[in-house]
Write a protein that binds this DNA or RNA. Structure first.
Length: 711
RNA sequence: GGGCUCAUGGCUCAGUUGGUUAGAGCGUUGCAUUCACAUUGCAAAGGUCCCAGGUUCGAAUCCUGGUGAGCCCACCA
């Protein structure tokens, strides 16, 4: 062994693999395909420990299947992540004293693409140092033309099938992000507020939001509530800050008689429940909150104030006019934007929607064709599909796929949406004339599509759909896909619906939900809490292979993990030591090989038989556990075998018959490296190269099979 | 208000379809060391597998109830 030969660095090995073309899918007909789809991380911020685990899992499976002789496609990509991308970029801009408005569309877009490029490069660095063996030649970004084409097809098809509609509905609006968001993009925070009791004619109602009083159009009670029976259907004059107004008392089942006084003000313009009540009772809709979260002219002298500001400002007047009877402390959950934590305002806005019921029904019928891990996700998704509601797909952002709808300026200045209005569905500016008025003055819908509208097509768009490509034929449905649990509805449920709807097939055969890595208290890691662990630092301290191994120990499907930098260090250190063990074994077996070492053996010595039997057991269990995606078990078995059974037991025994045991030592050692390669790609490659071997790399060595080795 | 998941030695976690003295790593204690490896080896201590019932020849594992923790969903005015 040439001791002076410098070992390759991890970066050099990575380049060697990449240059050798080992990462590329090889659609030659002789090999069976195995496809894995990388969940595209958001181009925003850095990859965290969860990403590192997710991608290490993908990589282990890809390497395993490759060694088994499959044509493996591990397709990588990145998501443009509309809302969170804009919010991050705009935050950055505001630090420079800039803003979206100040820059204007063109300049902002330029900055956006630059920002995207920076994040992209940092992702690539992370992927490289983690050793991810993805086919980079097929990498996809969700804003590229390929995805635009697929998204357009999706939109157009929905339109033709009558599943798409646009209209003014009550939606959740984030004043800070300046866009509609979905329920799924909101979270609730507990807040201590006041419950205000207000006089409404003869009744007293309780509300946390007195500022919406300006937009009330009725008072409602429960029809079974005896206290108020006599008032129902009657109209009363009530005192408001803009003078007296007439208002009707209506009865609706949705009112909880136990809340407050049992009587409620109804504000159809700014409350989801009230909107429904308003629809049923044909109430007018008033707007007192605008899209910036400020009160409208309807609020008189309070117009222009922010919601919470106005609430405080109007209290003295309410009290003075005798409208405010009393206040109570009240703790409740307030909906905030998941991205920027701003209080969400329900308002009426013109948005696009997709009718989801038929898609959900199809998904329900086919869900059992997807192997969901852990399998209780079957019920979780089923329950969601059963109660699906329409998908609000428009966002008032710049970063995203523009809605491919063009309005005729001349005959449809209101941008109305209907088959007999001047509008065209088209990706590019239409060249034809308006069918209604013969003009050709087109203007595109200003909004962009929800990120998930394109991400939902990820399994299809990445393979070139709607074109009938060879890749789509060969790699779809995907053999394996994995994700974090928090996007099970936003992403997974939708991928299933969309694939079934457009392709008639499930998108993936195996769907793996990994757990969430949390801090010791069980909280999620987050930038704001500052409790994050940077995978970079772990890799720098302990090496990639050790870090990957530590992550695999947390990879049991559906299991959350609690950890800390200290615990990660502990685990990483352990596997770093394991790596050292491997190197020392190599030294013992190969560098200190006795001169009279046997060159062949029938492995009939009882110690040889024993270790080979154990090794066969290991091969079977690692193979089985990889095939059932239980990487944590495979890693445990490998560790136990190599350290305790092989090094501590067999190698010790072998010392008394060192020369004779050589073939068995070599055989067991080499097999171990191969079994370990999917998990610890770098060290196994480095050591394997120092062994007598056939082939260019352990990456393309054949996966071991249990059995008596050939003599 | 519904639903899901978890509860195993000081800490972080394994434990396949119920089957002999319940495992690992870290930590702790003792011993060893010119031996491939102190980034080591050997050994030891440490668990009524949350509680109470039930099914079974047999339960950490299955069922019921309870307690505690976490998560998800829902139009908490």
């Amino acid at each position: 062994m040439d001791k002076h030969k410098q070992d390759k660095t991890e970066k050099e090995w990575y380049e060697f693999w990449e240059k050798s073309g080992f990462f590329k899918a090889d659609p030659s007909l002789s090999k069976k395909p195995y496809s894995l789809l990388m969940p595209p991380p958001n181009v925003n911020g850095e990859l965290h420990l969860g990403h590192a685990m997710q991608q290490s899992i993908l990589d282990a499976l890809a390497r395993f299947k490759r060694m088994q002789g499959y044509d493996v496609l591990l397709l990588p990509g990145v998501d443009h992540a509309g809302i969170i991308f804009e919010s991050t970029l705009n935050k950055q801009l505001s630090k420079e004293g800039l803003s979206k408005q100040k820059l204007g569309y063109e300049a902002w877009m330029k900055r956006a693409w630059q920002f995207k490029e920076d994040v992209y490069n940092s992702f690539h660095k992370t992927w490289t140092f983690l050793g991810i063996s993805a086919d980079w030649s097929r990498e996809v970004f969700t804003l590229e033309p390929k995805v635009a084409k697929a998204t357009f097809e999706e939109f157009k098809t929905f339109w033709e099938q009558g599943l798409l509609y646009k209209g003014a509905y009550i939606i959740q609006w984030c004043p800070k992000c300046g866009t509609a968001i979905e329920d799924l993009e909101m979270e609730y925070v507990e807040r201590k507020d006041q419950l205000y009791y207000l006089q409404y004619g003869p009744l007293v109602i309780a509300t946390t939001r007195p500022e919406t009083k300006f937009a009330d159009t009725a008072v409602a009670v429960n029809p079974k509530d005896k206290r108020y029976k006599e008032y129902v259907g009657k109209e009363f004059e009530i005192q408001t800050l803009n003078g007296p107004r007439k208002m009707k008392v209506i009865a609706d089942d949705a009112i909880d008689p136990k809340f407050g006084t049992g009587a409620e003000k109804v504000t159809p313009g700014h409350d989801l429940l009230d909107y429904e009540i308003g629809k049923k009772h044909d109430l007018p809709i008033l707007h007192v909150i605008n899209k910036e979260g400020r009160l409208t002219e309807l609020a008189g002298k309070y117009a222009g104030m922010k919601v919470e500001e106005a609430r405080g400002a109007m209290l003295p007047e309410l009290k003075e006019k005798g409208i405010l009877i009393k206040t109570e402390d009240y703790t409740h959950s307030v909906p905030v934007c998941e991205r920027c934590k701003t209080t969400v305002q329900p308002i009426i806005s013109e948005e696009w929607f997709v009718k989801m019921k038929p898609l959900a029904e199809k998904a329900l019928k086919n869900l059992d064709k997807v192997n969901l891990l852990p399998k209780n996700y079957h019920k979780i998704l089923t329950d969601w599909y059963k109660e699906i509601h329409d998908w609000s797909i428009s966002r008032s952002l710049w970063w995203g796929h523009r809605i491919p709808v063009w309005y005729c300026q001349k005959c449809n200045p209101q941008h109305e949406v209907s088959k007999d209005k001047g509008m065209v569905i088209s990706l590019e500016k239409p060249t034809q004339k308006c069918l209604i008025c013969q003009a050709s003055d087109w203007i595109q819908d200003e909004q962009v599509l929800d990120t998930w509208f394109s991400s939902g097509l990820w399994p299809l768009a990445t393979l070139g759909w709607p074109d009938k490509t060879r890749e789509l034929d060969r790699y779809f449905p995907w053999d394996f896909e994995l994700t974090a649990p928090e996007i099970k509805y936003l992403w997974i449920a939708r991928q299933i619906m969309l694939s079934l709807w457009f392709k008639g097939q499930i998108p993936f055969k195996n769907m793996f939900f990994h757990g969430t890595i949390r801090d010791p208290k069980g909280q999620k890691f987050s930038k704001s809490l500052g409790n994050g662990i940077n995978p970079y630092e772990l890799v720098e301290t302990w090496g990639v292979d050790a870090t990957r191994m530590a992550l695999y120990t947390y990879s049991a499907p559906g299991r959350d993990a609690r950890t800390s930098r200290r615990i990660m260090d502990e685990r990483c250190k352990n596997f770093r030591n394991f790596g050292t063990k491997l190197k020392n074994l190599h030294r013992f077996i190969f560098e200190l090989k006795p001169k009279d070492a046997a060159t062949s053996s029938d492995f009939s010595h009882e110690e040889d038989t024993e270790i080979i039997q154990w090794l066969n057991g290991l091969t079977d269990s690692v193979t089985k556990n990889l095939e059932s995606y239980q990487l944590h078990l495979a890693v445990e078995d490998l560790y136990d075998f190599i350290w305790h059974k092989f090094a501590d037991s067999y190698v010790e025994w072998s010392k008394k018959r060192r020369a004779e045991a050589q073939p068995c030592l070599e055989y067991v050692y080499k097999t171990c490296l191969e079994l370990l390669h999917p998990f610890m790609p770098f060290i196994t490659e480095e050591l394997w190269h120092k062994l007598p071997h056939e082939g260019k790399s352990i990456m393309v060595a054949a996966w071991p099979e249990a059995g008596i080795p050939a003599k």
